[in-house]
C-alpha cells in the first residue's frame, strides 16, 4: 500500500481557517460482486478516517462502498496552536494506516 498523502499548511495565523487534504490508495472490493466462478467477494473498504489535533479529535468520517476506492477527503479546521495533526484510517480486514503533519501557528 502506498503511503497516505497529507497536506496541512506548514504555517498559519492563530484563528485562521486552514484546509486539510488527505488521499489514501486502497484496492477496493465493494462487497456487491461475485468472482468469475460465482463466489461472493467479501467487502474490503476503508471505513473510517479520524483526525486529532494535539490529541483532540477534530474530524471523523465514516466511509461506505459508494465512496471512491482511493478516498480523497478535504476538510477545514481552525489553527489554534502549534503542534501535530495525526490521521488514522481504518477498514475491513483489520486495515489500518496512519500519518501525521506538523503545523506552526503564529500570532
Amino acid at each position: 500500500m502506498a503511503k497516505p498523502l497529507i497536506n496541512v499548511p506548514a504555517k498559519a495565523k492563530r484563528g485562521e481557517v486552514i484546509e486539510i487534504k488527505t488521499l489514501i490508495s486502497h484496492v477496493m472490493e465493494t462487497g456487491f460482486r461475485h468472482s468469475n466462478i460465482g463466489e461472493f467477494l467479501p467487502r474490503d473498504i476503508i471505513t473510517q478516517l479520524v483526525c486529532h489535533y494535539n490529541g483532540e479529535e477534530i474530524f471523523r468520517a465514516d466511509l461506505f462502498p459508494a465512496i471512491a476506492a482511493n478516498p480523497f477527503i478535504t476538510f477545514h479546521t481552525v489553527a489554534t496552536e502549534s503542534g501535530m495533526l495525526t490521521f488514522e484510517w481504518t477498514g475491513d480486514n483489520g486495515f489500518s494506516a496512519t500519518g501525521q503533519a506538523n503545523i506552526a501557528v503564529v500570532d
Binding site: A2, L5, L23, S25, A69, N70, F72
Partner: peptide, 9 residues
Amino acid sequence: IEWIGLSQG
C-alpha cells in the same frame, strides 16, 4: 519517466 497518477497525488 516518472508517472504520478491521481491517487498518488
